[in-house]
Write a protein that binds this DNA or RNA. Structure first.
Lengths: 211, 211
DNA sequence: GTCTATATAGGGATAGAC
DNA sequence: GTCTATCCCTATATAGAC
């Protein structure tokens, strides 16, 4: 949940930064937070600029001072994830994603995703809108998390049964993240992460043993 | 792929039917097929009625003879899945979805989903639009596949570790279906189904053994 | 940095002819 | 069952004042 911060803000806030993000707590950031919430709950396309503005407490055109377009807002949100993705995956070449490497990757991802899971829900719930964005502006394919994984999983040099398990493991991790709020709302993140790790481990075990 | 067929009326189009659906090959059905393709590739919101009409070979208002609204088209598509869902789940009470029952359920689902996987991709890619539809018209919650599963997985009488495994298994199945075309395009369905079953089995094994 | 007012386009939907 | 023409609304986005 985004606590939108009381935001009295008003005139001149040198508001203290609560997040570890690089962005300072400017109006821009507040817009992004509100947009994130609205986009995930209502969907990108069903959310209007007017609506975002209303939540901000001011009027629609004001947003255009901070963002050139509605898509730019989505883009900015997307880039947070982008950066994270590049980071998470940087140590691994896509064509050497063996089951063992994959496990290590997922293991690292579990914690990291939990922290950013708002962004992942956004991604999950607005695949269509993001795909469109992705098509329009020519984002280098390698940079995107989902694409990177898809391509890695399509690698035919890996035995098919391993690929299936790797896919299952990946989707299981992402899927559980998606249900963190709905299904596992009462469960502490750490506990969930531990159980998830266990499950993934059992799932991948046959691919990790020498054959 | 739907070959839009030149279209000129086609009073007597002997179009070869590829699908085994129950609906006869009426204009209505062709609209649904085209919409399905467009909605999945471009997203529901980015697809206009004009676009659907163009593919049909006639003009926008003609569609309104067959469907009262754009949402109705999505709805009709959604109902196919709906019916399937109710069917797939009918034998199980939600509160008795033990790990063992769950396994059996997924086992049945795997084949069935493969057959209808176009519809599942639609669902995955347009979660936002469908959620909205779902909110507006008051569809009985129990009837929807995703909701049914979410609620079953939220059942706190089931041990948490089992719930996590069940969730992983479910998401793995759905997730692999989603990637059938992208990642596993070269793999025959039957082979994929078999491997998927194996993976799910290993994943669920610890929950099936007596503790 | 935020406002009011406005331009503009596109989409969903209807009326009524054929 | 399909067409033409049209209505109407909403949404994005801009211009320019404060």
């Amino acid at each position: 949940m985004i606590t939108s911060h009381t935001g009295t803000s008003g005139a001149e806030g040198k508001l203290p930064v609560a997040t570890g993000s690089a962005e300072h707590l400017s109006t821009r950031k507040r817009i992004l937070d509100i947009a994130l919430e609205l986009f995930t709950t209502q969907g990108y396309d069903k959310t209007s600029m007017r609506e975002i503005a209303a939540r901000m407490g001011f009027s629609k055109p004001a947003i255009y001072y901070h963002f050139a377009s509605k898509e730019d807002i989505l883009m900015a949100l997307h880039l947070r994830l982008h950066e994270f993705g590049r980071n998470a995956v940087s140590t691994v070449q896509r064509d050497e994603a063996s089951p063992r490497v994959w496990m290590a990757l997922l293991d690292r991802l579990i914690d990291q995703i939990l922290e950013l899971h708002d962004l992942f829900v956004l991604q999950e719930r607005n695949q269509a809108a993001l795909a469109h964005l992705h098509r329009e502006r020519h984002i280098s394919e390698q940079d995107l998390l989902e694409d990177w994984f898809s391509l890695a999983l399509a690698n035919q040099e890996i035995p098919l049964d391993d690929r299936v398990r790797m896919t299952c493991a990946f989707k299981a991790v992402m899927g559980v993240m998606d249900l963190v709020d709905d299904v596992f709302s009462e469960v502490p993140s750490a506990a969930l992460a531990a159980l998830l790790r266990e499950a993934v481990n059992d799932l991948m075990a046959p691919s990790l043993d020498p054959k």
